[in-house]
Every structure is written in structure tokens, then in C-alpha cells.
Computed example of a mutant assay.
Amino acid sequence: MTHAPTSLTLHGYFRSSASYRVRIALNLKGLTYDNVEVSLIAGEQRSDAYLEQNAQGFVPMLVADGQTIIQSMAIIDWIDRACPEPRLIPEEAMPRAVALAQANVIACDIHPLNNLRVLKYLTKDLGLNEETKNRWYRHWIVEGFDALEAMAGEGSFLGGDAPGIADICLVPQIYNARRFEVDLAPYPRLSAIEAACMELEAFQRARPEAVKPG
């Protein structure tokens, strides 16, 4: 078992879905961390100093007691092992598989296709206009949410009676869906789960508006 960290620094961008996930996880664990804003708009993630620590040049990046961890799902898994309570990823084989399947509908199938660098490529390199780009964005959210709505159980959260890794992924994705005017009416279970999450301080303090610079 990894020992609980004594020093944590999260390098992220306030509106990055992946950074948002990690902020929620840290808050749910009750961990104190320093938040360092890395402006994706200004390209700070491609600076030499940042790339020395994170060769991929993405956010988030967590520095824990001087050691660097990248990729949000790996970071959350590390947090869950370093500080086991409350549990975010079930230990038992089947509940773990269910939780990771739900989470990966977003982390593997929706988010990568709607990442900022992908959207920039669609407009800058492929010449898509803003309306077409937004149709692309909404399409992949709708496809993923259709599946996730059917996969949702009966509990207050995707993770059952307490929020888990799937809920941590869901809330930032619904935030993005609203930004791009996705109709959430077909997703009553997902909407109810998001509402339950947002009643918790850990989710409230992780919101982009709560950490936005200035």
C-alpha cells in the first residue's frame, strides 16, 4: 500500500475535464493540494519546463511528494490506493469492472474525441466551421450518454450509494454537455445523479468556476 502523501501539487486547467475529475477525487478524499493553473489556451502545456516533467504535454499532472503522475485515470487510481477511504474504485472484481466500464464510456469513448486539441485540429487543420465542430462534439456526447443512461443502476450515484470513479467522470462531462447545448432531457438518471453529486461540497469546490484564475 502506498503511504499517504505529505505534499500534493495539481497542475491543471480550470476547464479541463480531466483536471476537473482529479480535483473531485482529491476533494472526496479530503486531501489538501496546491493548484497550479496551466493555460491550454496560451499553450503553457508545451513549454520546455512543463515538458520536462510531462513528456506528453497534457493536463492534469499531479506531483506527489516530488514524484510525477500523469493521465487523470492513473492519478485517480493512485489517489485511491494511497488514501483508501472513501473508496472510489471498488476492490471486488465484478463491482470494479462495472465501475470502470461506466467511467470509461466517458474517459475512453467520449472525452478523447472532444478534447481541445482534437477540436482545434477539426477547425484549424481540416477547415470545419464552428457549427460543424459543435455537431461533432454533441454527437459523441449523445452516443456515450445513451449507453450510460442504460448502464446506470438504481442508487443515488453511478457508483451506488456513494460517489465513485464513474460519477467523478460523469459530472465534468455533463458540465461540457451544457456548454455545448446538448439536450439532457433524454437522460433523467444521469441528470439525477449529477444533481446528487452537486449537493456534495467535494464536487462544488471542484467546479471550474470555483478554481478559475482571477
Rank of each mutant, 00 (worst) to 15 (best):
H139I: 05
V59T: 13
Y175L: 13
A206I: 04
G155H: 09
A18F: 10
V171H: 13
V118K: 05
T32Q: 07
N35D: 08
L100M: 02
E130K: 15
K29Y: 14
I89V: 10
S47I: 08
W136M: 01
G155Q: 10
A4L: 00
R178I: 08
A202I: 05
P188V: 00
E199C: 13
W136V: 11
F203S: 02
A101R: 09
V63A: 10
V36Q: 14
D77H: 09
S191N: 07
Y13P: 06
R87V: 00
P188N: 02
A55Y: 14
E149D: 02
T132G: 13
I168L: 08
G155M: 10
L28N: 02
Y13C: 00
E37G: 14
A49T: 09
D48H: 15
N134L: 15
A42C: 05
G160F: 03
A192I: 06
R205P: 00
L148T: 05
K212E: 12
L51G: 07
L190E: 15
P213G: 11
G127D: 14
T2D: 02
F58C: 06
M61Q: 11
R178N: 03
Q173K: 01
E37I: 14
N129Y: 02
A202H: 13
A177M: 03
Y175V: 02
G30H: 00
L184M: 10
P163V: 01
G12D: 12
A74D: 15
A162Y: 11
A177N: 06
D183V: 14
R117Y: 03
R135F: 09
R189H: 13
E209Y: 06
L88S: 08
T123C: 14
E91A: 10
N129R: 00
I79Q: 07
V211A: 05
M94F: 11
T32S: 04
V211R: 04
A103D: 07
I70Q: 14
D183A: 07
D109L: 12
M198W: 07
P172W: 12
A101K: 15
E130Y: 06
